[in-house]
Amino acid sequence: MNGSEIMLDAVNGIAPDLVDEAAGYRFKRNGTNALAWAAAACLMLGVGAAMAAALLNGAETPGNETAQGIDTAKKTEQILPQPTEEQKVMYNSSDEFISGSVLNKGDLIISEALRKAMAEETDTNCLFAVKILASACEKSEAYIENMNDRLFSDPVYMQFMREFEQWEPTYELTETERRLEEKGVSRVDIAMDRFKEIWKSEKSEELAARLEELEAQMDDWRENLTGLREYLEVCRAEELARLIGLGYPIETNEFGQWCSKLTADQINAFPADPGWGYKILWASDGEGFV
C-alpha cells in the first residue's frame, strides 16, 4: 500500500465513538454566512437584490432587535391599552414555522391557521396571540444596491473585471484546478483566483494594492454584511415605534421577535408600510411569547 492508501485506512480505523458522534451530529448552520452568500450571489449576478434583501431581513433573527427598540416597546407598553380581564385571549402553539418566510415588499400575509381561527371566532373582542415577521425590503434593497455600486463600480475593480472577462475563456484549468472544480468549486472562482495573481504581478504596485483593498472590503461585505444589520436594526426599531404609536401593543420577546395580542379587526386592518413585507402568524409558547 502506498502512503495515501495507508492514510485512508488509518482514517477508517479511528475510534468508533467519533464515527458515532459524526453520524448523529447536526451542524449549526452558519446563518449569517449563508445569508451573506445568498445575498452576495444575487449581488454578483446583478439581479435579485429584492430576494437578497428579503432573505436578510424576512426571517426573524434572534436577538436582532436593538436596545432602543426594546426600550421603546417596553416603555410604550405601559401606556397602551392592555387586555381586560373579560377579554378572551386565544393561543395556539400550532406547527407553523417561520423558516422559508421570505417576504417581499408590499406583502401582508396572514397565515392560513390564523385566518381560519379568526373566521371561526364569533367574539369580536377576542385577542389572538400572534407574532409579526417584518422585513424592511425597500430599505435593505437600497442599502445593498448602494453598497454594491460603491464596491463593484470602483474603476480599478471594473478594469480588473473587464480584463478578466476577456482572459477567462482562454484559460485552461490545471489538473489540480480541475479536481477542485469536480469538488464543487466553480470554474469562474478558480480562474479568478489565478487571474488575480497574474494581474497583480503585471500591474503597478498602486493598482495591485487598490485591488487588494477592494477585495478585503468585498470579503468583509460578503462575510459580515458590514453595516447592513445595524442599519436594519435601526429601521426595525423605527417601524416598531410607528406600529406601537398606531395602537398596536407589540412586545419583543427574548428572541427579538415581535409578539402581540390583537383582535381580528386589528389584524385585518394592519397598517402596513408599503416598503415593507409582513407576515402575521400564531405565536407559540416555545418561542418565548408570554
Binding site: 451542524f27 448552520r29 452558519n30 454566512n33 449563508a34 469538488k183 464543487g184
Partner: peptide, 9 residues
Amino acid sequence: TGSAPQRLA
C-alpha cells in the same frame, strides 16, 4: 453547514 463549497473546501 450553510457554507459556500469553496469555503468548505
